[in-house]
């Protein structure tokens, strides 16, 4: 089975997403945060060798552990894997010393087109049979376990043969990949599809989760949208506490991508997560007294 890279800068505790708006603050100071996650594609530049953003990243990476999070692997697409892109990712990972890299369990395009969205898969044996060799191919090329994130979704397919969490578990079992459990996505999908988010968490294999994501959604009245443009909402904080109880102190990232707040506000959000994380020393620890009900507010 592939292993995670543990040689350098292993992130622990709570990190935030490094976005270009914050580059200057990280270049000219050392804001107090345990680690940073980058969106890999933002640092590839025009030809895979990067541009201004990568130059800033390399300076920032001297002071912070970095992890890479991609949005264009398109692991579920029926198109062939983009090997040039994967080589570029590997090169970026080596250059910035990222501790690990992750992407999403989805497809982002087909027929050579990239729709730049995280599109859902049917949870079928056919999809698993398609995914497993591709995950293995990526893991061989990158030399480590691929970490895949559950996406938020707005539609599902009638011919799915299993739940999303059963599908994820089966993929982990067959490929040894890791999971990035996006707690906000679990909640958003639970509301949009009408399942109990705790069933999702309880259905995920304990040892597979390498990282958590937390983010803020937008409430469109009839459904929730994973916009990453708000603080983390109370029901997601509650679900995060359940995730900590089940999986332990997994490195957690506050993801904020739109309507970016001042860095100080982002760091305050990270401090909230850090506080909750400190409450849980080990999996299955007792619930914090601040626990609130998991439900749509």
């Amino acid at each position: 089975m592939p292993r995670l890279n543990t040689e350098k800068g292993q992130p622990a505790g709570v990190g935030v997403g490094l976005r270009s708006k914050y580059h200057q603050q990280f270049l000219h100071g050392t804001p107090k945060i345990a680690w940073l996650e980058i969106v890999s594609e933002n640092y590839l530049g025009l030809d895979g060798r990067g541009g201004r953003a990568r130059e800033s990243l390399l300076q920032i990476a001297e002071h912070y552990p970095i992890v890479m999070h991609g949005v264009s692997l398109s692991i579920g697409s029926v198109d062939p894997l983009n090997l040039e892109y994967l080589h570029q990712l590997r090169s970026l990972k080596n250059i910035c010393g990222a501790a690990w890299y992750s992407d999403h369990l989805c497809w982002t395009g087909v027929g050579g087109e990239n729709l730049h969205d995280l599109l859902p898969l049917p949870y079928t044996e056919e999809a698993l049979g398609h995914l497993c060799p591709r995950v293995q191919q990526v893991q061989e090329l990158m030399g480590e376990a691929l970490i895949l994130e559950n996406v938020s979704s707005y539609l599902s397919f009638a011919h799915s043969e299993m739940s999303e969490w059963e599908f994820l578990s089966e993929l982990v079992k067959r490929t040894g990949c890791g999971l990035l459990l996006d707690v906000n996505n679990v909640y958003v999908s639970a509301i949009n599809h009408g399942f109990d988010p705790m069933r999702f968490l309880n259905g995920i294999p304990r040892g597979a989760v390498r990282q958590f994501h937390l983010a803020g959604y937008s409430d469109n009245g009839t459904h929730l949208v994973d916009t990453h443009d708000h603080p983390v909402w109370p029901p997601v904080w509650s679900l995060y506490q359940e995730a900590l109880r089940l999986f332990g102190r997994i490195p957690t990232l506050i993801e904020w991508d739109d309507k970016l707040p001042p860095l100080e506000q982002l760091l305050e959000e990270a401090a909230k997560a850090e506080h909750l994380m400190e409450t849980y020393d080990s999996p299955n620890a007792s619930r914090a007294s601040t626990m609130v009900e998991v439900g749509h507010h």
Partner: peptide, 19 residues
């Protein structure tokens, strides 16, 4: 079309339209 789940809180057309 008919393989997209049509269930509350959204019908299948609304679900596809979000994307």
């Amino acid at each position: 079309t008919s393989w997209v789940v049509d269930a509350p809180p959204l019908d299948r057309f609304e679900r596809i339209d979000i994307y």
